[in-house]
Nucleic acid binder design. Sequence first.
DNA 1: ACACGTAGAGAACTGGT
DNA 2: ACCAGCACTCTACGTGT
Length: 327
Amino acid sequence: MIQEYKNQKTKAEETSKQTRKENEASNPECEECDGLMRKNESNGEWVCEDCGLVSEGNAIDRGPEWRSFNDSSGQKSRVGAPTTNLIHDKGLSTNIGWQNKDKSGKTLSKNKRRRMNRLRTWNERFRTKDSKERNLKQALGEIQRMSSSLGLNKQVEETASMIYRQCLEKNLLPGRSIEGVATASLYAAARQCNTPRSLDEMYPVSRISKTSEIDRTYRYIAKELGLKMEPVDPRQYLPRFISQLEVSNPEDVRHVAEEMLSAGEDANIHSGKSPTGLAAAAIYCGCLLNNEGKTQKNIARVSDVSEVTIRNRYKELLDAHPKFEME
DNA sequence: ACACGTAGAGAACTGGT
DNA sequence: ACCAGCACTCTACGTGT
């Protein structure tokens, strides 16, 4: 008996370790240096491991509450799951127990039982009170299913859920399928979270019969919600790429790269180009001018951009910069 | 080994009908 | 709603230093 209890305990410890690991994998990235943010469990703040930046955006600790309410037993009790956008009512709804017993465990009288039944019925009606709620419930399930088979993280799921909620609020659903809007939301969310998946990747995991429907729906909701799909600032990638490159003077390289990017912006050669490509090219310039001896191949590997693109972009950047203008 | 250039294919978007 | 064209990036080569 005791042995069994111990086994259970170690099993529970193992699973909690595992979930902690999984949680860490979905930790947000630092806005300043792209390092991994870690949560300080005592106050719920997110702190960057690399630069020490403290994020205020998520200052509320939504973790479950593990504390003792009953001093005599000393057992810790869990108050509830963290709120999440992934459950249609954010997990905040009331549930009425099915046992017809009062708090001391006594069976309820016939009259009270009938009353509880009525309460349950109405509670259920309010919980999924209209078509929107039921709709949302189904869509969020779809989003989670697709997200997991595409290997997207929780952050993307949450973002997709937010987008879907906005579609509902703005009444964009009528005339469109739940599947379509859910898939489009996930597609948009994956892009916003910098882990994009192509439309062709989305198609097989969705329950959509036509490829073009995802494309069309995505365009529609992006337009209606004013989703900002503007390309990210190439500067955002500099610190991460440079640190992965392991150059001797990261600051100098970064300085030159930023200068090149600014000159490129002034010359308006950045529009339509991939931000990672521009960042990689700017870093290549920085390495050349600082004699870091990094090849295009080195940079292509850390930036996930082809050598060809680096070549094309870096020549444009040089042309755009007044200092290096071709004679 | 590296830099550079080119061709052909493919993905995402735009605009015309 | 559909299709064609676009500007871009990719892979896979070949060439020159």
